[in-house]
Amino acid sequence: MSELPPSDPVAQPAIPVATLVPETAAPAQAPMLLEARDVHKSYWLGDKEIHVLRGATFGVRKGEMASLVGPSGVGKSTFLHVIGTLDPPTQGQVLFEGQDTGAMPEETLSRFRNRQIGFVFQFHHLLPEFTALENAAMPALIQRLPVAEAHKRAKEVLELVGLGHRMDHRPGELSGGEQQRVALARALILKPKLLLADEPTGNLDEATSEGIHQLLVQLNQQLGIAALVVTHNPRLAERMPRRLRLADGLVVDG
């Protein structure tokens, strides 16, 4: 495996490393976006080491949409955190467009998370003291865009998720579905290349979940954003073009 020098992932052109990855059922041979190679992750609970991931290997291509299912407590969230660079792997590599994220220093990693990845969590995780507009604009502000520009983009993206009329409400004044849409808008404002969603409909009712999923599919088709959606709902998972399963610390197709 060739070590790539740590550098700005934004400035670097994508280097296809598709050949290094086992063939998947991806419909098109688009360049590889994110790759996990032999990723291990373990936690210490007192004196006991718990191995959550034991050499998970997998890849997502540009514009690809996949679901990840697995029983509770198998480590789906941990897996998402590791490939989303929120948590470093104990062993193994996470490559984004061919670059090793483990070799990136803190600031580069932050900028990378800011621009390339959008997260949606099970619990919306919005900042409670800010309005929907301010919440959605936050990543743009972190990128140091001017406030006016950030708010303009936040409005656009909130309208995209159908919340144009709820912009000045705080999370507490929004319904669960609306909160999750704001979270989605926040994840999308900087047009990331990859969307990582951790049970985005985990605590929503059937109809609302359906709406969110349709929105996800629609956004994937419209904007070409690759998405990995962790879900509990087998019906929703079935509808994704590609289905992954996490079992025994490994990721398997099917």
């Binding site: 929120l86 932050s110 900028r111 995780h125 900042l127 936050m138 972190i142």
Partner: peptide, 16 residues
Amino acid sequence: TKEISILKSMGARDAS
């Protein structure tokens, strides 16, 4: 703590 984590997941730097 949660808020800090969210901000970091959105790309906020340690210095921020």
